[in-house]
C-alpha cells in the first residue's frame, strides 16, 4: 500500500459481520481502509490554494518527499507529524478531514526554506504550506495559532512607523501570549542589558521613516484587498 494512503487506515478495525462479494471478512483487521465517499474530498480546496499567490506551485508537486527528508522541523528537530509533502498531498486530494488533524502542527513551519531550495519540481513548498494554513483558517477549519498571531503582531508593529521596534513587539506579544519562560525577571534582565547599551528604538526615540504616511495608505489598501482589515 502506498504510504500516502496511511490516513485511510485508522488502527485496528473490528468488523463483527462484514461480507464483501459473498465472502465473510468479519474479524480484526489492521489494514482495513475506512469507507470513504467522493463527497468527503473537497476538490475546490486545491483550487483555492492555487488561487493564492504563494500557493501557485501546489500542483507541481509529484510527492517525492525531498522537502520532508530535509525539513529542519521534521528531521533535525524531530517533529515527525510535520510533513510538508503529506500536507501538499492532502491539499491536492482535498482530504480536508485529515488536514484538520494537523491544524496545530502546520503553523510551526519556521520558514527556513530548505524545502524550496531542494525541490526538484520548483514547488515553493514553504509558501505553499503557509497558503494551505491560510486557506484552512479562511474556511474556518483551523483556529488562530501562535504563529499567525505573531505574524499579525509583527505586521501591526512595522505599520506604525515603517521600521520594526523589537522591544515593543516583544512586550506586546509576551503580554498577550504569556510564554512560560518569559518571566518578569527574565524580561527585566534582558531589558536592562539592552537599555544599558542603548540598542533600542522604542518610545520617543523611535525613528520614523520619512514619507511613511503615503506608503501606509497604499499598504492599508493592499491589506484591505487581501481581506486583512486595517492595522492599528
Amino acid at each position: 500500500m502506498p504510504i500516502h494512503e496511511k490516513s485511510l487506515i485508522d488502527g485496528v478495525i473490528e468488523k463483527d459481520s462484514a461480507v464483501v462479494d459473498g465472502v465473510d471478512v468479519s474479524g480484526r483487521w489492521n489494514t482495513f481502509i475506512k469507507e470513504r465517499l467522493l463527497t468527503d474530498y473537497h476538490e475546490d480546496f486545491v483550487q483555492e490554494v492555487k488561487s493564492l499567490q504563494g500557493g501557485k506551485t501546489v500542483t507541481n508537486c509529484w510527492q517525492c518527499g525531498t522537502c520532508t527528508s530535509g525539513c529542519c522541523l521534521h528531521t533535525d528537530y524531530g517533529l515527525r507529524e510535520f510533513n510538508p509533502r503529506y500536507f501538499i498531498y492532502l491539499a491536492q486530494t482535498g482530504n480536508v478531514d485529515e488536514l484538520k488533524k494537523y491544524e496545530n502542527v502546520i503553523w510551526r513551519c519556521i520558514s527556513c526554506n530548505k524545502c524550496v531550495e531542494r525541490c526538484p519540481k520548483g514547488v515553493k513548498v514553504e509558501e505553499v504550506v503557509h497558503a494551505i494554513d491560510e486557506v484552512m483558517r479562511k474556511r474556518g477549519l483551523a483556529e488562530d495559532t501562535p504563529g499567525s498571531r505573531w505574524d499579525r503582531t509583527y505586521l501591526d508593529n512595522i505599520m506604525v512607523t515603517g521600521v520594526l521596534d523589537e522591544l515593543g513587539l516583544t512586550l506586546k506579544y509576551v503580554r498577550s501570549e504569556k510564554p512560560a519562560d518569559f518571566t518578569r525577571g527574565f524580561m527585566a534582565r534582558m531589558a536592562f542589558k539592552i537599555l544599558k547599551n542603548g540598542n533600542v528604538r522604542t518610545g520617543p526615540i523611535r525613528r520614523r521613516t520619512k514619507g511613511w504616511k503615503k506608503m501606509k495608505k497604499v499598504a492599508d489598501s493592499i491589506l484591505e484587498a487581501d481581506g486583512y482589515g486595517s492595522t492599528k
Binding site: L52, Q53, G54, S111, E127, H130, D133, E134, G147, S148, W150, D151, R152, Y154, L155, I158, G162, V163, L164, T209, W212, M215, A219, I222, L223, A225, D226, Y228
Partner: peptide
Amino acid sequence: NCCGATEVKNISYDL
C-alpha cells in the same frame, strides 16, 4: 523601511 522578513508574506503576498 522594514522588508517584512518572513512574517508579512504569511498575511499578504502583495505587501
